[in-house]
Simulated assay, not measured.
Amino acid sequence: MQTIAERLDSARKGIDQAATSAHRPPNSVKLLAVSKTKPVSDIMEAYEGGQRMFGENYVQEGVEKVQELSHLSDIEWHMIGPVQSNKTKVVAEHFDWVQSVDREKIARRLNEQRPDSMPPLNVCIQVNIDDEESKSGVALSELDALVEFINSQKHLTLRGLMAIPKADPSEEQQRATLSKLKEIFDHYHTSLSNFDTLSVGMSSDMAEAIQHGSTMVRIGTAIFGKRN
């Protein structure tokens, strides 16, 4: 049975290979280790294996881990799950990034509730790229307005886009979705100074996402094993 450190190493090698195949430098793609439902001991094992970026889906669980590991000042915590308006305060007070902002109300509350003593909160807009009713994310028709709003907020820094494409697409569907996402990302990347992150790709579609410009892949099971 492989250790977490060994699985991390495999994930990094997979990212490097995918980047090389896409004629991109290996360091152009970051690895976000998705640690939801996993104990702090697993996060510590990944940390000792050199991992510093961790993604959590559930607010309460994530906040508890941030607090328990607050002595490790170089961990970067990403909230990647949906944030409800009654949870924005604890998220704003504890996380470094929120990748799942999909409406103005949430962005406004995160901005108002981010402590002055902390640097601006890094934000990605979650885009409902395949227009699925079951998924969170802003519709493409409303994206410009949300970009403009977040960009005007003092305590937020708009870093890019996050998306969860349709599960089990055909190769053609997958290519179309990822190409569209890259086109939208490039549009903002050329006009906004801090817009540098395209967070797309998980264990199953990592190579394809990197081929289409992903700068951050979110890997959980392949590092930590099946979810509890």
Results as ranks from 00 to 15, higher is better:
residue 41 S to M: 01
residue 135 K to H: 04
residue 92 A to L: 12
residue 78 H to W: 02
residue 122 N to W: 05
residue 198 L to S: 07
residue 220 G to T: 00
residue 152 S to H: 08
residue 97 W to M: 11
residue 115 P to R: 00
residue 143 L to V: 06
residue 178 L to V: 08
residue 49 G to L: 01
residue 16 D to Q: 15
residue 20 T to I: 15
residue 9 D to Q: 13
residue 99 Q to K: 09
residue 162 M to L: 12
residue 144 D to W: 14
residue 115 P to N: 01
residue 163 A to K: 06
residue 15 I to L: 11
residue 46 A to Y: 00
residue 200 V to W: 10
residue 29 V to W: 10
residue 106 I to K: 12
residue 7 R to K: 09
residue 3 T to Q: 00
residue 152 S to T: 11
residue 83 V to C: 14
residue 181 L to F: 12
residue 217 V to F: 04
residue 159 R to I: 09
residue 54 F to N: 00
residue 7 R to W: 00
residue 153 Q to E: 15
residue 169 P to M: 08
residue 61 E to H: 00
residue 162 M to A: 11
residue 120 P to S: 07
residue 12 R to F: 00
residue 75 I to M: 06
residue 182 K to A: 15
residue 195 F to L: 12
residue 175 R to E: 14
residue 106 I to G: 13
residue 33 A to G: 13
residue 148 E to P: 11
residue 67 Q to E: 15
residue 17 Q to M: 14
residue 203 S to C: 02
residue 161 L to R: 08
residue 97 W to L: 12
residue 163 A to W: 06
residue 223 I to F: 02
residue 100 S to D: 01
residue 7 R to Q: 05
residue 62 G to I: 03
residue 227 R to N: 07
residue 82 P to E: 13
residue 12 R to N: 02
residue 56 E to Q: 08
residue 102 D to C: 01
residue 178 L to M: 13
residue 83 V to Q: 12
residue 205 D to E: 12
residue 157 T to Q: 12
residue 69 L to F: 07
residue 83 V to P: 10
residue 138 V to K: 04
residue 202 M to P: 04
residue 69 L to G: 04
residue 67 Q to A: 13
residue 97 W to T: 10
residue 35 S to K: 01
residue 143 L to D: 04
